[in-house]
Amino acid sequence: MEPAIRLRGLHKRFGDTVAVADLDLDIAAGEFFSMLGPSGSGKTTVLRVIAGFEQPTAGTVELFGKDVTALAPFARPVNTVFQDYALFPHLSVIANVEYGLRVAGVGRRERRAQAEEALASVRLAGLEDRRPHELSGGQRQRVALARAVVLRPQALLLDEPLGALDLKLREQMQVELKELQRSLGITFIFVTHDQDEALTLSDRVAVFDAGRVVQLGTPREVYDHPRNPFIASFVGSSTLLEPAIAEAFGLPAVATAVRPERVTLDAPAGGVRGTIAEVIYTGPEHRIVVDLEGLGTRITALEPNMGAAHERRRGDAVTVAIDPAGAAALESEAPAA
């Protein structure tokens, strides 16, 4: 099937700064696709190029088989949810949602009905006549969503839409976003620097670093098999092991990343001996840092909180083992720059 969005040789420079370097990307129709990366990694620029707010320095943007590189934003079948929502302050909630329909020449009664339906779909019915400044952050977020989806875009572009919300609201909106995407059945392209959000929501994740996609895959592929040290530490947390250390654990002698939850302490089969250097209580679990004996390095393990009676103490001697299936061999060299 033809991809919803196809980027070829996309390159974007701002002055001397390369924001996006020779990017090729295919995003399937109906996919929840995340672009994950630290700030300045180029993910937002890619989104803005797809929306048409930025012209690429080189390369093409195809939407549903049509080259739209030269088209203005208003001529593209995609809509955007902005990071700061960008609601029109002089218009009421309903007028904000109706804006795109009014531009498209939809009749008064019809657009009112569609806007009300869109507001109901984001659970905002009853606030039609408020002004944006009278709404909470979460409500503004929903208005921005309704304003974009009411036009039934073929793809929805979301630029860190949950960044300004507090944790509880963010988790709730994550669920709602996922449900909305499922019910609309359209492509969502989601930009975020929050790895948790990207893993939770996405069908596929592209990890950005310095203007390039350094890894592309399902959340499980990216989390379980990070390709390089940057991904291993940016997506979740990992202990990075030198080849010699990996060998000491019975793993292949290459640079390896190990997730703390795949590290076992006091395994029956034994392992590398060490001393507990730090026990960090996080509520549901303990994060335990172990000094490895004779190897001059540390490793972090995660154990569920089984109550005070089972709590480990600093200075306790332990043996450390790594589940070989949970160790990711890393590409030693950095990706070609």
């Binding site: 934003p73 208003f74 804006y99 795109g100 531009v103």
Partner: peptide, 19 residues
Amino acid sequence: RLLEASADLGGRGWRTLTA
């Protein structure tokens, strides 16, 4: 951002200016 939002929702220059 508001100018971009208007363009994103289909508004051409004149519409963005007046609305």
